[in-house]
Amino acid sequence: MKELHRAIRLLYTGHSQRARRFRYGLILFDALTIIYFIATAALPTTPTMFAINTALGVLILLDLAARSWISQNLRRELMRIYTLADLVVVASLLFAPLLTGNFAFLRVLRGLRLIHAYHLLRDLRRESLFFRRHEDAILAAVNLFVFIFVTTSLVFVLAFDEKAGLTGYIDALYFTVATLTTTGFGDITMTTPSGKLLSVFIMVVGVALFVQLARAIFQPSKIKYKCPQCGLNRHEPDAIHCKHCGESVKIETEGEVGA
């Protein structure tokens, strides 16, 4: 059992090429499940889809169990936002027949794992100069993507009939984006108090995420590297000294050497 525990821990947290490939494989699995959840959000559940959902629920649960098993701090692991999202997704997949409402929109929360998991940030920072230069913009884009599609699915469930199908889902996406950008064309509106409160929520949170993305794109590019002396973790791409304390920093580059 100890050997199995060690093998799983090395796959999830190790530095070997095998471990990195494993983690990138998990990210590919996450991306494919997100595409599937978005594509099927407006479709009625068929026996085939039910079987696929159950299989995905079991796989996600096994992944969650493995990560919890190897965690050095189980409580902290269970309180992470993406772990809570996984628990919600698993519940919506495995207990769907017992639920009276349509909770398919919750499955898009799986998108939170696209970046915030499997030590992916560490791998990308080490292996990709592009990611190091644009990390904030990439993370902001992922957060905005997840918010848009979770909210779209929620709007579809609350404001459209299940029989509306793909056309209704596109209308829900259109309403979400129009509300988020405060365009307000007015051709699709929420008339109930709960619908109006949802619109306010979309505007407030969505605009904040959109502004965060715009700021990350247009602000001067900086690289995350923690200064060993003072702890400052944002530096210019070509910095050789920490601008706060003067300590030498050794930022990894492609083809360039930092002192």
Results as ranks from 00 to 15, higher is better:
residue 63 D to C: 02
residue 116 H to S: 14
residue 22 F to A: 12
residue 77 E to K: 03
residue 11 L to P: 12
residue 99 L to K: 05
residue 31 A to L: 15
residue 100 T to H: 12
residue 71 S to L: 10
residue 47 P to S: 11
residue 56 L to V: 15
residue 105 F to K: 02
residue 31 A to N: 01
residue 8 I to Q: 09
residue 25 G to A: 06
residue 26 L to F: 07
residue 65 A to F: 11
residue 3 E to C: 01
residue 28 L to W: 03
residue 100 T to P: 01
residue 80 R to V: 02
residue 94 L to N: 09
residue 117 A to L: 04
residue 75 R to A: 06
residue 2 K to M: 12
residue 69 W to K: 10
residue 74 L to E: 05
residue 94 L to K: 10
residue 20 R to Y: 04
residue 108 V to R: 02
residue 82 Y to W: 07
residue 73 N to Q: 08
residue 12 Y to N: 12
residue 107 R to K: 08
residue 83 T to G: 14
residue 103 F to D: 03
residue 27 I to M: 07
residue 2 K to F: 03
residue 107 R to I: 04
residue 48 T to K: 02
residue 85 A to E: 09
residue 45 T to A: 06
residue 77 E to N: 03
residue 82 Y to V: 06
residue 85 A to R: 05
residue 90 V to L: 15
residue 115 I to D: 04
residue 67 R to M: 11
residue 97 P to A: 05
residue 108 V to A: 05
residue 98 L to V: 14
residue 63 D to N: 11
residue 98 L to R: 07
residue 35 I to V: 11
residue 7 A to C: 03
residue 86 D to K: 14
residue 39 A to N: 13
residue 112 L to D: 04
residue 50 F to N: 13
residue 76 R to S: 09
residue 42 A to G: 11
residue 61 L to H: 11
residue 8 I to F: 00
residue 61 L to Y: 14
residue 43 L to W: 09
residue 59 L to S: 08
residue 101 G to V: 10
residue 120 L to P: 00
residue 97 P to I: 06
residue 115 I to F: 05
residue 28 L to G: 05
residue 56 L to T: 14
residue 56 L to I: 15
residue 27 I to V: 12
residue 7 A to Y: 01
residue 48 T to C: 00
residue 101 G to P: 15
residue 92 S to N: 04
residue 78 L to I: 11
residue 26 L to T: 05
residue 5 H to K: 09
residue 72 Q to M: 05
residue 62 L to C: 08
residue 29 F to T: 08
residue 118 Y to D: 13
residue 11 L to Y: 06
residue 68 S to T: 15
residue 67 R to G: 14
residue 2 K to A: 05
residue 63 D to K: 04
residue 64 L to T: 12
residue 39 A to C: 11
residue 82 Y to D: 00
residue 59 L to C: 12
residue 39 A to F: 07
residue 31 A to F: 15
residue 23 R to F: 05
residue 105 F to N: 03
residue 56 L to A: 09
residue 34 I to P: 00
residue 69 W to P: 00
residue 24 Y to R: 12
residue 33 T to A: 11
residue 19 A to Y: 13
residue 72 Q to H: 14
residue 36 Y to R: 09
residue 23 R to I: 00
residue 9 R to T: 14
residue 112 L to A: 13
residue 50 F to C: 08
residue 26 L to Q: 09
residue 9 R to M: 09
residue 102 N to W: 06
residue 20 R to F: 05
residue 68 S to C: 12
residue 104 A to C: 03
residue 88 V to F: 07
residue 15 H to D: 13
residue 56 L to R: 11
residue 12 Y to M: 13
residue 81 I to A: 12
residue 5 H to C: 01
residue 53 N to A: 07
residue 33 T to G: 01
residue 114 L to G: 07
residue 85 A to H: 09
residue 50 F to H: 08
residue 122 R to Y: 09
residue 98 L to C: 10
residue 14 G to C: 06
residue 99 L to R: 07
residue 41 A to H: 01
residue 15 H to I: 10
residue 31 A to H: 02
residue 105 F to L: 02
residue 114 L to H: 07
residue 108 V to S: 04
residue 6 R to A: 04
residue 23 R to N: 09
residue 99 L to I: 11
residue 16 S to W: 06
residue 106 L to G: 02
residue 79 M to T: 13
residue 123 D to I: 08
residue 110 R to I: 01
residue 122 R to S: 13
residue 16 S to T: 12
